[in-house]
Write a protein that binds this DNA or RNA. Structure first.
Length: 499
RNA sequence: GGCGGCGUAGCUCAGUCGGUAAGAGCGCUCGACUCAUAAUCGAGAGGUCGCCAGUUCGAGUCUGGCCGCCGCUACCA
């Protein structure tokens, strides 16, 4: 069975969950749900990054231990994703013992393979950033304000510089390794620009994973964090599991962390003797008024605020539909609401509503069977093909746009046939059967984005089971609504929003 | 400075290998309909595809230059 292992970045517990995080996680959730429909063996991973100085400091400020601090924030992320209906298979924490073993194993192998060496760093250090600062980047103000300090410490360095060639070879051999393609070029640019060895340990803090070969050193958070993906696949703990899952790994990430994920991380894997390198799907940022979201007031709106306004699926759909995957996307409350009203309330919800009402007035509430050879069958086939291609290319907005064509065409079909003017009988039965069949297919195809609404609609159509349990491509084939099922009338699935 | 991305209808965006008369949704105008959440359907207006030059029988689509916006350049998705 084909496997689909998708990861989100793990979120630093220094920060509360915000819409930017939700954006990443929802894209991954929708795409992995699609792959589940295809019957693939899916592993969707998210989690939290919990080591490092910032956590240690936050803990001190709150009078907690670092782990207690991490526990609290990690739990908030876990709850936020549950609230959004995210179906991740695992939630990893870098403070877990399995992760410690994994990091130590990976690094020890790189060390044993000769890719890690000791050197003394003597220079400026930014305590708040936990980072070394090069001489040319330090201003006198930095020094006077104490933002940077002079530091001499023994350090272990990773020989990143030795991986320029291997990485370039890998890029050349795998033209699809990063999508969209523009970001692949960025990663290539970083490599071609020359790679310098990087410091991967710290002695100045102790809230981290100990370096196995050097007392008093811990791994710097990035190299600890990246390894979470391998840990979750079983690295250092369950070799058989790792061998099964790792070859199919795909990382979902924002464009700001390309350097670490697409350059440093594959080099580390190679250094440790792991030959299978990941695929990547890189997205841009959400912008508000042209500015990166995290800098704006919109950032103060939490995902749960938007759930209150739009409902879980309303938020999921509007965000996914309105943000092409890859480039930066402008978002606003107005735009999300507009999308909700037009696509969910006016089109999908209203189609379900008018169809079920007509089934009650013309067919005594029993949904009739569709015409197996109706022209809508061709539309459904086209829509499926386009949606499948888009999901496969990691483009939820395009997939949803394609799916909604079936809804539009069905509304158009009702308008053209005017079943409300017909007398009960075979003719009106066929028309409404066709509408119900289109809705059945939409329920399956839209379920990656709006799972619970599709389940609700599915039930109203009188169907058993759940759209989430259907198998594609079979379930998208026209003509499977059986007829003879009781169709339920109910309140609008997506109440139109005003204001 | 170096590297990279973007610039297509009022808005948000599609446009794979260069090729039938530039697309979609929304918005707008007019009309139709009334089963439905004042929802739906049809018609229409609206673009010198940032600018200039080049390659080509032919460029939004390739090349060079310019303008504008943005990002990365050691840790905010």
């Amino acid at each position: 069975m084909s496997r689909y292992f998708l990861t989100t970045p793990i979120f630093y517990v220094n920060d509360a969950p915000h819409i930017g995080h939700a954006y990443t996680v929802l894209n991954g959730d929708a795409v992995t749900r699609w792959h589940r429909l295809l019957g693939e063996d899916v592993f969707y991973l998210t989690g939290t990054d919990e080591h490092g100085l910032k956590v240690q400091r936050a803990a001190e400020a709150n009078g907690l231990s670092p782990l207690e601090q991490a526990d609290g924030t990690s739990q908030r992320f876990r709850e936020a994703w549950a609230e959004l209906g995210v179906a991740n298979d695992e939630f990893i924490r870098t403070t877990e013992s399995r992760h410690h073993r994994s990091v130590q194993t990976l690094m020890q192998r790189a060390y044993d393979n000769g890719y890690i060496y000791s050197a003394v760093y003597d220079g400026w250090y930014s305590v708040s950033d936990e980072a070394y600062v090069s001489e040319e980047d330090v201003t006198t103000e930095d020094i006077e304000s104490g933002r940077v300090e002079r530091m001499t410490e023994e350090n272990y360095f990773f020989k990143l510089s030795e991986f320029e060639e291997p990485l370039l070879k890998w890029f050349e051999a795998n033209p699809q390794n990063i999508t969209p393609e523009g970001y692949r070029n960025e990663a290539l640019g970083i490599i071609r620009g020359g790679l310098r060895d990087i410091s991967i340990t710290r002695t100045s803090i102790d809230w981290g994973i100990p370096v196995p070969w050097a007392e008093g050193h811990v791994f710097y958070v990035w190299y600890d964090a990246l390894t979470n993906y391998a840990t979750a696949a079983g690295y250092g703990n369950d070799d058989e599991r790792f061998a099964q899952w790792w070859p199919s790994v795909r990382h979902l990430l924002g464009k700001d962390i390309i350097r670490f994920h697409c350059v440093y991380w594959p080099a580390m894997l190679l250094a440790a003797g792991v030959e299978d390198l990941p695929h990547y799907h890189v997205h841009g940022w959400l912008l508000v008024g042209g500015e990166k979201m995290s800098k704006s007031a919109f950032n103060q709106i939490s995902p749960s605020d938007l759930i209150n306004d739009f409902g879980v699926d309303g938020f999921r759909y509007s965000l996914l539909r309105d943000t092409p995957f890859g480039p930066d996307s402008e978002v606003s409350h107005e735009a999300l609401q507009h999308r909700y009203n037009t696509d969910l309330a006016n089109n999908f919800g209203n189609l379900l509503q008018r169809s079920s009402t007509l089934v009650h007035s013309k067919c005594e509430g029993i949904g009739p069977a569709p015409d197996p050879d109706h022209p809508l069958a061709d539309i459904a086939a086209e829509v499926y093909a386009d949606a499948a291609a888009a999901w496969d290319r990691f483009q939820p907005s395009v997939a949803l746009e394609a799916t909604w064509r079936l809804i539009r065409d069905t509304n158009e079909y009702l308008q053209a046939t005017e079943p409300w003017k017909m007398d009960p009988g075979p003719l009106v039965n066929t028309v409404l059967g066709n509408a119900l069949e289109a809705l059945r297919i939409v329920c399956v195809l839209a379920s990656p984005a709006i799972p619970s609404s599709c389940e609700a609609a599915w039930t109203r159509l009188g169907l058993d089971g759940s759209p989430l349990d259907q198998r594609l491509p079979e379930a998208a084939v026209w003509g499977q609504y059986p007829g003879g099922l009781p169709v339920a009338q109910g309140d609008p699935l997506f109440p139109r929003l005003k204001g």
